[in-house]
Design a protein around this nucleic acid. Sequence first.
DNA 1: CACCAGGCAAGTA
DNA 2: TACTTGCATGGT
Length: 212
Amino acid sequence: MKKSLSVIYRRLYSYFGPQQWWPAQSRFEVMVGAVLTQNTSWPNVEKAIGNLKDKGLLKPKKLYSLRNARLAKLIRPAGYYNLKAKRLKNLLRFFIQRYQGNVGKMALVEAKALRQELLGVNGIGPETADSILLYGLGKPVFVVDAYTKRILSRHGIIGEGMDYDGVQKLFMLGLKKDARLFNEYHALLVKLGKDFCLKVKPRCLTCPLRLK
DNA sequence: CACCAGGCAAGTA
DNA sequence: TACTTGCATGGT
């Protein structure tokens, strides 16, 4: 028996409650965090963002004016720091040149078109782009991540090989197009993944989903 | 010690 | 198109 996405959502929400994502103080901070968290645990990202805040550098032009070596040093705790320094600069260059470093201006653009623009930036892939759209700008775009795929395939809802766009369609066609719903749903899947579905061996004995 | 984390792009066949 | 590899710190 395959459960609907709505049923799964309600079960996760009853069990875990609201997740309060994205943990950031500004929409710009979400953009930066989205790059820094690529394949990296959140506590490490927080340290990196904390370094930038402490120096008063968490602003588009300030951040963009830093030399790569300096930026890399500041974001070191987030891992892949040389790579991420370049990726951040790529995103910032796009953001400043195209939207004057103004989140409000960027938010005026339609989600689908903006997604394509973001994907054109080297270092911004589908999950990073969608995280910015949903958590930064409040657009109704579903964010898919490694946990999402692992959980769904482990419960037989999707095949293991299903790609990003396929999983995203499944959610976006199967649910009401509501940014708050998408926000909470993705965050809940991450919470479930962290707490119950870690490592190679599934440990879902007490998993609140109890699917089959 | 091994394994994993809120990915992505470049290289290879 | 479909794999494989490099990137790196910090927590469990």
